[in-house]
Design a protein around this nucleic acid. Structure first.
Lengths: 223, 223
DNA sequence: TAGATTGTTAATCGATTAACAATC
DNA sequence: TAGATTGTTAATCGATTAACAATC
């Protein structure tokens, strides 16, 4: 019996639950009800219970959820109880920013290597991680059991590198290049399109401004 | 008559339309039907037509959409025909990565200044942008008509800086800190939670692996 | 036991897709 | 005119919220 498909919306919310539970844990909170959590997170308690029940009954009637237990369970669901070996392709600022973010390692994401085509970067060491030539990519992926590649390179180079990664047996691409990648269906692509994020922000700023101006115009007419 | 509310899902897709239309424009394509575009973008033609018709009738029966015109119109909708003044708070790798991404300026996002608390960074110049002390934040925002602040600082510092920005009159926060911010409702927060993105990726990798293992187990049983 | 709160079913709401008349 | 394709209405699908019996 293949487990029922979990909707994308639920998966998007899981890491946020995980973050809030982690904070509760740090604050020494032992248990929490879906209602209390819903107030903190500004979502409905119904949604929290529905979301969690996709994966099992983690709570207890009359008690709520044990924070430590639920935190661990969501961690398992997200797969951050396992080790993931990562490489970063593109050792520019963005690549280095990722390499320097220590918290990823706490969650089982181990950065095994960085790659670039710039000879001036090759050989440098960032946080103990050597920057290698992209020529050595395939061999390195095979030798180090690398599952995930972060792509922090210009969009022009991304499709070719993605193809090489897929052929080398990578399982997932964390894509920061401003383009869509086409990969076989058993390879995961998670896009982080920063320029699109900034445009959404722009839209929202402008639409607030516009509606304020509209309101002002309306009130002028009323006078 | 306040314009009808546009759903979040539509807004999320707009920048992607904009990107594809930009590419078509570069390739010299003059017109495109919703059907052709839907094939390229791997969405339904229905969805494209519904999405666009939230903002007006940009097409023509029997012809399709004029690429150049539609590109410009979506640009206007997204507000990237206007100028947005941005500051970056946190001049680490991530802040510098954003400062160095030239394409933002092409779309009207002008980086006016960078800020940090690290004395060793203050005074440095990145791509012509001086790194200033966070002490000067409020004055700078007022003097330079800054609307948007990118927050590339640790989560512990983010809420306090966000408060200061709001008081200084900022309109939007592009939040890279791993925490939620609470701001007045006329201030926009666009979150880029990279660690959550990586967890979603992890979930998807693991769920593919698990279902493959499940399949293997099933076929063993069948033998 | 009484009170609290879950897990789960049912009702509602919203988003996506299908269909087709309008029209270029 | 005939063919193509939009804009838009209607049908479907899925996600969210409400409600409540089960139960700790």
């Amino acid at each position: 019996m293949s487990e029922k498909e979990i909707s994308k919306a639920v998966i998007t919310r899981l890491p946020r639950y995980y973050r809030y539970l982690g904070e509760l844990l740090e604050d020494g909170v032992e248990r929490i009800s879906s209602n209390d959590l819903s107030v903190r997170m500004k979502v409905t308690a119904s949604q929290i219970r529905q979301d969690l029940n996709n994966f099992g009954g983690f709570g207890q009637q009359g008690y709520g959820y044990n924070v430590k237990y639920l935190y661990a369970e969501i961690g398992k669901i997200l797969g951050i109880d396992r080790q993931h070996n990562i490489i970063i392709i593109g050792a520019g600022n963005l690549g280095q920013a990722i390499a320097n973010y220590a918290n990823f390692e706490k969650r089982g994401f181990l950065i095994k290597g960085m790659f670039d085509i710039n000879p001036r970067l090759i050989g440098l060491v960032v946080r103990g991680i050597e920057i290698r030539s992209v020529d050595d990519l395939e061999q390195f992926v095979k030798d180090n059991d690398v599952q995930i590649a972060a792509l922090t390179i210009p969009k022009t180079k991304a499709p070719e590198i993605a193809d090489r990664l897929v052929k080398a047996g990578i399982k997932a691409i964390w894509n920061f290049a401003h383009t869509d990648l086409s990969v076989p269906e058993d390879v995961v692509v998670e896009n982080v399109h920063l320029s699109e994020s900034l445009m959404r922000l722009s839209y929202r700023v402008c639409s607030i401004q516009d509606s304020e101006e509209e309101r002002n115009r309306q009130s002028e007419i009323m006078e």
